[in-house]
Every structure is written in C-alpha cells, then in structure tokens.
Design a protein around this nucleic acid. Structure first.
Length: 208
DNA sequence: GCGATTTGACCTAA
DNA sequence: TTAGGTCAAATCGC
C-alpha cells in the first residue's frame, strides 16, 4: 500500500482531541490496509452520503491486553483504490513493543522533541504505534497541550525520498486527511513549513 | 475447536 | 429522530 497521508486532529464535544487520519492508496490484488498491526473487525456501517460502507477495527489484543486502539476504514468516494483510515487511541499491547523501535525513534526524532515526548504520558503509545507500523520514514509532531487519549504522534510513510512528492500530490488531489477544523489553513501551513518531517502540533494550532 | 468475519440490533449523542 | 459507533450471535475458514 501507499499511505499518502496526513494526520491530525479533530474536536470532540468542545474539547480538543486528536486522531490520525490517513488516505491510503491500495495496490490492486494486494491487501490495501495491512499496516503491520493486528486488527480485528468488529463492525461495518453504511455512512450517509458515502458510496462505500465504513469498517470498524479494534486491536486484536483488546481483550487479552486491554489495548484501546481502534481504526475506521472507508473507501474514498472518488477513487475505489483510495482508503481513508482514521486511527483512534494508541496501542498499549505487546505487538507494539517492536524490537528496534526505540532505536528508530531516536534516530528519526529531532533532538528538541525528545524531552517533549518523554514528558508526555502519551509518548509510549505513540512509540508503540510507530513500532507496530514499521515505518520507513515517519514524520512526527509533538502533542498539543491537553491532547486527549486519541493522540498518536507518529505516522509512517513508505518512501523516504518520495515523501514530499507524496504530500504534494496528495494535496493537489484534494486528498489530505486533515481534520475539518484545520483543512482551510493547511495550504498556508504547508507552504510555510520548512521541514515537513518536523511539523509540530503547535504549528497546526498556530495555522488555525 | 478456535479465532476472525459478518451483520442486524442496540446504544448514545446531537 | 437520525446517524455513527459498538455489541454480540451466527457463520466461516484454517
């Protein structure tokens, strides 16, 4: 699959919360949504105005390990090979404790973010997600103050060299997975971003 | 037999 | 009342 992606946040019940939303391009005859983690489908629902139903997945280890991670997957109306994937919560299960994850995170995480991540109670979950997804070149952003349990701080992108192109092409196609609250501001935000790998959550708030 | 998927019913918030 | 999200029984596949 090719995660064209983006991530960010939403607002729920008047308080800021965070989710990670991705638009994934499926490859024909291949499992389009295999992100390296074990998910169990627990429901499917027709969504008003949507051409395709939305599928609901939770972590396989929800019962055994109490892992709260869930994701919602829905085909894009315009392109049957595109899937919108929304992750809620972060993995706390053993599958997320992938060997080498810490090394990878430290290798890719800018120095200035280390303290933020370590001081955040959500950092382990973010790390778990990163580990489970086995990213090649994740970008990261720091959690916003007061970010809820839905926060996931990392996101995988398949090609290190193709990242910027993917983001640009995604944007040009209107395929950004940005929360509605921030979408109108994304173009300006993106143009002003000097290093997409180091976008911080505060940048998104500033852009808003 | 066990775990995953399907699908209709149920719950909750707006 | 309606739509989105979840539950749980039935079913399927290994």
């Amino acid at each position: 699959m090719c995660p064209l992606a983006l991530s960010v946040c939403c607002r729920r019940k008047g308080t800021p919360c965070v989710r990670t939303q991705v638009r994934v391009a499926a490859v024909q005859d291949m499992a389009p949504l295999d992100d390296g983690l074990s998910w169990r489908k627990y429901g499917q629902k027709d969504i008003l105005g949507a051409m395709y139903p939305r599928a609901y997945f939770r972590c396989t280890h929800r019962n055994s390990q109490g892992c709260p991670a869930t994701k919602h997957v829905q085909r894009a109306d315009g392109d049957p090979l595109l899937y919108d994937v929304v992750y809620h919560g972060a993995h706390s299960c053993a599958q997320a404790a992938h060997p080498g994850a810490e090394h990878l995170r430290r290798q890719l995480q800018p120095e200035g973010h280390a303290d933020v991540e370590q001081s955040s109670p959500l950092a382990p979950e973010a790390e778990c997600l990163q580990a489970g997804l086995e990213p090649v070149a994740p970008y990261s952003f720091a959690p916003a103050p007061g970010a809820g349990a839905d926060f996931v701080g990392y996101f995988p992108l398949l090609s290190p060299t193709g990242l910027e192109w993917q983001l640009r092409s995604c944007y040009a196609a209107g395929g950004l997975g940005v929360g509605m609250d921030y979408e109108p501001h994304f173009e300006e935000f993106y143009k002003n971003a000097t290093d997409p790998f180091q976008w911080e959550y505060s940048d998104l708030y500033a852009a808003n």
